[in-house]
Amino acid sequence: MTTMLHTLAAVGPMAAAWGAHSLWMRRRLTAARRDPLSGLWTRDAFETRAAHTLARRPHVAVILCDLDGFKAVNDTHGHAAGDAAIRSAAASLTDALTGHPGAVAARLGGDEFAAAVPLTDPLALPWLLGGLHDEMTAPFRHAGRDLVVGASIGAALSSDLSPAVSRPGEALATLLRLADEAMYGVKRTGGGWHYPAATTPARGTTAGRRTGRPGTHTTHRKGAA
């Protein structure tokens, strides 16, 4: 018994230290998957979690949001104001998803955000998008003044997809393209939100993004028509 007590006394601190180290490592790994400015998930972490949600929920809205007038805020009021706009948009996105258990939100980069939101009733999607747009376009406070950015929001619903698109990763890629098309369509009309209920992307994909989207290009071979 004495030997056992001595052994436990020796091993106890080591086990506690290992437990603390494991907790620290988990926190570091989680932090590495978070965008440091917005606090939202990064693209890779979002795609993993969104695919997981799509595999388990019958109605999932995939949403893309892009801020309008973000460059003007940066140019006029400085990069600190731009950072404040990003943080405000992230907080608005988080607030709008409250009440939707299992929702995943991310900052994809720059002033672009994404979310995968399980819905009990798909008919609630327009109200979700309208509320999100109102949240994201509300004034935010920076350096003693109220500033405003616009938002263009596009969405696609998993239950609108063809049953042939059954793999979660494939479904997510398709939904992101559909949401991207909807988002840029509404951006061309001055912002707002749009849910077209389409099932097939109207345009192709270049490097994982909608062909023709800023930042994409196609390479034409010589002699190609």
Score class of each variant (00 low, 15 high):
L176T: 06
V149T: 12
I153V: 15
Y184W: 14
T200C: 03
I153A: 07
L175W: 03
L176C: 14
R167F: 11
S158G: 07
E170Q: 08
A171I: 14
S162L: 02
G150I: 10
Y195M: 09
L172K: 03
A155L: 03
S159V: 08
R167A: 13
A173G: 07
A151P: 02
A179F: 07
G208R: 10
E181N: 15
V149H: 10
S152T: 08
G185R: 15
G204M: 05
P168S: 11
G192R: 06
R177T: 05
S162T: 04
T205M: 15
D160N: 13
G208A: 15
V186C: 05
K187L: 02
A182G: 15
R167D: 13
A156P: 00
R177V: 02
R167S: 14
A197D: 09
L175Y: 03
A155I: 05
W193S: 06
S159A: 14
S159T: 12
W193C: 07
D160C: 14
L161S: 00
T189H: 08
P163V: 02
A198H: 10
A151L: 01
Y184P: 09
L157I: 14
A173R: 12
A202I: 12
M183F: 08
G190F: 00
A171T: 11
W193R: 07
A155S: 14
P201N: 02
L176M: 13
A173I: 06
H194R: 08
P201L: 00
A182Y: 10
T206H: 05
T199V: 10
T174M: 09
T206F: 02
G190P: 03
G185C: 07
P168T: 09
A179Q: 06
P163A: 05
S159Q: 13
E170A: 14
G150E: 12
A197W: 10
D180F: 00
G190H: 02
G185V: 11
